[in-house]
């Protein structure tokens, strides 16, 4: 698993899925958490200054546990919404895990 920072104007691969976040500490923690939660997938980060895309191919998992670990404090996954104006792919939300995906 590798984290790739794509050029800011690079076209997106259609297979990528995952959250789009307002830039800031939460977005940074999500990048780390997504890396941990998707050990078999590369992570692609597109930083457009004001917003950041954090994507993996086909399926992207984000757990409350990983996010808390990288934020260094308590965090409820539902609060991710405060900094998440969009996401790429379909979504499945549960209290301890969010998942974005496309049909294969």
């Amino acid at each position: 698993m590798t984290v790739y920072e794509l050029d800011s104007d690079a076209p997106l691969d259609p297979v990528l899925v995952g959250p789009v976040l307002r830039s800031g500490p939460l977005a940074d923690a999500v990048i780390e958490a997504v890396s941990d939660d998707n050990p078999d997938r590369d992570v692609y980060v597109v930083d457009r200054d004001d917003y950041v895309r954090v994507h993996t191919p086909h399926e992207c998992r984000l757990t409350w546990r990983s996010l808390e670990e990288h934020l260094g404090g308590t965090f409820q996954l539902s609060a991710l919404e405060i900094e998440m104006p969009s996401f790429k792919g379909r979504m499945r939300s549960r209290s301890q895990e969010y998942m974005w995906f496309h049909s294969e």
Binding site: D9, P11, L12, P14, S86, K88, G89, H102, S103
Partner: peptide, 17 residues
């Protein structure tokens, strides 16, 4: 370019699903 990012690559891909 923004339309290609948001509408073609993001929005339309989910509709295909």
């Amino acid at each position: 370019e923004f339309m290609l990012e948001w509408i073609v690559d993001q929005h339309e891909r989910v509709l295909e699903d």
